[in-house]
């Protein structure tokens, strides 16, 4: 068994270098495929993180209170809201707190707010929902309270965002599946050419009593080596691209969606696992498919 493996490894490496042209061709195609796949992975993960963070940011209802609402009235509202199942917590945001939040969000431009003079922001209640599904009802109830100026709740927007992100994810999944199939076809063609060129050798090996695995082993490994090398190349390129992207556009994304891009390290660690397993299986499946015909008897 060990000896058989040794033979396979030796032959696989010899073949890997001997068929340089074809090896390079399939290496490049799989690498390209994996890079595109990696891009879709980045997009898909980021979109899903973005949606999640938007969801969690907007599972709140803002209830703006009229300026003449007394703190007793506010307390009554808070108590009755706290009694509801749909409500996780209610926080009273005073004018001053609201202004501080504003300033924080505006960052270095916050000094502009200093020119406002009297604080124009209302007192408000911030309701955090246990479940986004109860949002509509809670918002409606809030509107019935006296002393309420306005109720802000963004369910429609959230629904739309979720729908868009679902579509993007589904699209990414289809593209990824398609790319995997294409890669398998490419590898199996490469190996097929190898097999063709080694046809007489295979025939002779069979005449001297080689088992199918003796013949198949090296080619299987050859496919897997191609897959692993391609995965390593694609990984390096994808990681570099993503890190560059985060450096260049991370801040803009943060300003636009008020959430960060997914940490490169986290994504890349996942990508290593994905690429390696994909590379190995693409290589293995590709070579098995291409050899089946030749090894029948």
């Amino acid at each position: 068994m060990i000896k058989a493996l040794g033979h396979s490894f030796k032959q696989a490496f010899v073949q890997f270098f001997r068929n340089r042209g074809m090896t390079l061709a399939s290496l490049i195609s799989i690498t390209a495929m994996l890079i595109i796949l990696g891009m879709f992975f980045f997009i898909s993960v980021n979109v899903s993180f973005l949606t999640e963070s938007i969801k969690s940011q907007f599972d709140t209802i803002e209830v703006y209170l009229l300026d003449d609402t007394t703190s007793d009235q506010a307390k009554v509202m808070i108590e009755s809201l706290n009694a509801m199942d749909e409500v996780e917590s209610v926080q009273l945001i005073t004018k001053d707190m609201a202004m501080d939040e504003f300033k924080e969000r505006w960052g270095e431009n916050a000094y502009l707010l200093d020119g406002l003079g009297e604080n124009p922001l209302p007192n408000s209640l911030r309701i955090t929902l246990t479940d986004i599904e109860g949002g509509d009802m809670t918002a409606a109830i809030c509107r019935t309270f006296t002393g309420v100026e306005d109720v802000r709740y963004y369910k429609d927007e959230i629904d739309r965002i979720i729908k868009i992100s679902d579509t993007i994810q589904r699209g990414a999944l289809i593209v990824i599946a398609f790319l995997i199939v294409v890669s398998i076809v490419v590898v199996s063609n490469t190996i097929k050419i190898t097999v063709m060129s080694r046809r007489s050798e295979i025939e002779i090996m069979k005449y001297v009593g080689a088992t199918n695995w003796f013949i198949r082993g090296p080619m299987l490994l050859e496919g897997m080596i191609i897959g692993v090398v391609a995965a390593a190349c694609a990984l390096g390129i994808c990681a570099a691209l993503y890190i560059r992207f985060c450096e260049s556009f991370g801040e803009q994304v943060n300003v636009m969606f008020s959430t960060d891009l997914v940490e490169p390290h986290f994504l890349i660690v996942n990508l290593i696992a994905i690429f390696m397993s994909l590379g190995v299986s693409i290589g293995a499946v590709g070579s098995i498919i291409s050899m089946r015909r030749f090894l029948k008897a």
């Binding site: 005449y207 001297v208 009593g209 080689a210 199918n212 008897a297």
Partner: peptide
Amino acid sequence: NRQIPMLRRYVGM
């Protein structure tokens, strides 16, 4: 199919 290689090992060609 598995036994064929074994057969060929004691038939030289």
